[in-house]
């Protein structure tokens, strides 16, 4: 496979995943902004941080008005992480590799783009936003489904998996890190109490507010959220799950190419750390520090994958 092809497949999957994550973040932000007693501006600021777009937003905006933030994250063509740009880039990558992907994948990519590119800020009323967020998630699910159902389990598959799960891991880690202090056990001890709106929002942004209750039943504590999103292997957006998928894809690659690279070692170290650690240990060493290191290791892995498989030679 051409290095360029691998690069395009990786980023195609990564941008589709990012579009979906963006829709979730927006959905939650939008919901919080509707609640009384919340500082809407501060919430949007957190959303922008989770999306990794805070600095670029501030450079071009003065306030954190709901509609301005929503437009920036949905439609802004100058924001490479806006849903508009994510879908456009994903489609462009897929189109460049039209012969490497299946017809179903192409049609789902193309369909998502055509549908979304027809909606523009001025013709989406505020009360139509939740429905739009839903459709973005549906489109992403359709793409994942087409991919999983039709693609050959060879390097094409592995590179798309890597793109998906590196992006997802990054996203989950950022969501946790932006509000990590809400999850600290001592927060409860010092009387901060359980800020239900805050942690519910966090769970919603990874589509886990219902499954969380099922897993932890009645005895949950806020720090269980961190456990759920970091260490729980059943939770499909947890860091642990993401790294189990990443490891599988990397093993698939090393088997089919007959070659181990430094990526397998790095991902292996990260996965075994996630398996070995427990929450008290993480809290003791510092949740924020743990997440910061994780985000940086995660992007280092992406970089090493690109180098090891000659994405941009």
């Amino acid at each position: 496979m051409l290095g360029r092809t691998a690069n395009d497949l990786f980023w195609m999957a990564r941008y589709m995943e990012r579009a979906e994550n963006m829709a979730r973040l927006l959905e939650v932000g939008h919901r919080l902004s509707l609640l009384p007693h919340e500082d809407g501006g501060q919430e949007w600021r957190s959303t922008l941080q989770s999306a990794g777009c805070e600095a670029s937003y501030i450079a071009s905006h003065d306030t954190f008005e709901t509609r301005e933030v929503v437009d920036y994250l949905l439609f802004d063509k100058s924001n490479p992480s806006s849903v508009y740009c994510c879908l456009s880039t994903a489609r462009r990558n897929g189109r460049a590799q039209r012969t490497a992907i299946t017809r179903e994948m192409w049609e789902s990519l193309n369909g998502a783009w055509i549908e979304f590119s027809r909606s523009a800020s001025e013709n989406v009323a505020s009360d139509a936003l939740p429905a739009l967020f839903d459709r973005i998630r549906d489109r992403s699910a359709l793409f994942r489904g087409a991919l999983l159902n039709t693609i050959l389990r060879n390097d094409t598959f592995y590179f798309t998996q890597l793109g998906t799960f590196l992006e997802r891991a990054d996203n989950t880690a950022r969501i946790l890190d932006v509000k990590y202090y809400v999850l600290l056990p001592q927060n409860e001890l010092v009387g901060g109490g359980l800020d239900s709106a805050q942690w519910a929002a966090m769970l919603r942004s990874v589509s886990a507010h219902r499954s969380f209750r099922w897993v932890y039943r009645d005895a949950f504590k806020p720090w269980h959220i961190a456990d759920f999103l970091i260490l729980n292997p059943q939770m499909p957006r947890s860091l642990h799950s993401c790294y189990a998928e990443i490891m599988q894809a990397l093993s698939g690659l090393s088997q089919s190419y007959g070659l181990e690279t430094s990526c397998q070692a790095l991902a292996g170290t990260m996965l075994s750390r996630l398996k070995m650690l427990d929450m008290p240990g993480i809290f003791q060493a510092g949740l924020h520090e743990f997440l910061r290191d994780f985000i940086s290791d995660n992007s280092r892995l992406a970089y090493e994958i690109a180098a090891a498989y000659h994405f941009n030679d």
Binding site: M1, L2, G3, R4, D155, Y257, L259, Y309, H310, F311
Partner: peptide, 23 residues
Amino acid sequence: VELVEAHDLVSTETGVMMKTTQG
């Protein structure tokens, strides 16, 4: 067969090489 653009190929002393995921 692979559909390549110019920057997927490079000349070395050996010949014309294609840049693949395996080098």
